[in-house]
């Protein structure tokens, strides 16, 4: 009796968490569509990166094949990671305003404020990945790894970013202002994305840097995305990516919720 009751309660609880998360994600997406400057910024910046690397730096980088094919999967992963910064910025912004007091007085699941933000930002990132792929195809990027890989690529990119959304949520909940959350996200994401295989093959880096770049989770994510787009061995990079994602999420999701509760 007591056990079935407990199960029923847990079920109801899980249902509310899912519903509240969806509601909060809806709210965040509505707000996103109201700030066209944000949408422009998150798509223009990566497009400029594509043009910069393809046409300016690309000629000087030797990858043993088409540099555009090499670059696009990497830049897609970079873009979704930069996109996660918005999770922290948005959370810090909410926390600096009266609206959190409203959320707190409601019988909603508290974790849904963070989960909803992550979900909403993931949807936005998905849209941005679509734009990136279109730009990539326009500058000569082609899939060589089959249809399954091509379909899987955007989903993998979004999946890979989950860990960083929660990491950024933690920094956002710690920051007093949206600006400082922005700086924090930049300081973390910038080195992670550039000290990786996203733009150049790791083998061309100086010897002391190679171990760092090789053990960077970003490198596993980029290599996985590249294999999805271009074919080739994928298992090891995929498994290591998953391990990193699970690990980082397991640490930062509870930390983010804890920090949010403390801050609000």
């Amino acid at each position: 009796m007591a056990v079935t009751e407990l199960v029923a309660n847990l079920r109801a609880e899980a249902r509310w968490i899912v519903q509240d998360t969806t509601t909060m994600a809806w709210r965040n997406l509505v707000v996103t569509t109201r700030s066209p400057e944000l949408l422009t910024f998150v798509t223009i910046q990566p497009i400029m990166f594509v043009l910069l690397f393809v046409y300016v730096f690309g000629g000087a980088i030797q990858t043993g094949g088409s540099y555009t094919d090499f670059l696009i999967p990497g830049i897609i992963i970079q873009t979704v990671l930069f996109g996660t910064g918005q999770t922290g910025v948005g959370l810090a912004d909410d926390l600096s305003k009266g609206i959190v007091d409203r959320y707190r007085s409601l019988p909603m699941a508290r974790s849904a404020v963070i989960a909803g933000r992550v979900l909403g930002d993931m949807v936005r990132n998905f849209f941005v990945v679509g734009v990136m792929l279109a730009v990539g195809l326009a500058v000569g990027f082609r899939f060589h790894g089959g249809v399954a890989g091509a379909i899987a690529l955007p989903f993998f990119a979004i999946f890979f970013s989950i860990a960083f959304h929660f990491m950024m949520a933690y920094f956002g909940a710690r920051s007093k202002t949206a600006e400082s959350a922005n700086v924090a996200s930049f300081l973390v994401i910038f080195p992670i994305t550039f000290l990786s295989s996203a733009f150049v093959p790791v083998a061309t880096m100086p010897g002391w840097l190679q171990p760092i770049a090789k053990s960077n989770p970003m490198t596993y994510g980029v290599n996985t995305a590249r294999s999805l787009a271009q074919g080739g061995p994928i298992t090891e990079d995929l498994l290591l990516s998953i391990a990193w994602i699970v690990g980082i999420t397991a640490v930062f999701a509870p930390l983010a919720v804890y920090q949010y509760r403390r801050a609000s």
Binding site: V30, V31, R34, K97, G98, I99, V100, D101, R102
Partner: peptide, 9 residues
């Protein structure tokens, strides 16, 4: 609450 808790956006 004391400060209006509305979502401006």
């Amino acid at each position: 609450g004391q400060s209006a808790a509305v979502d401006e956006n």
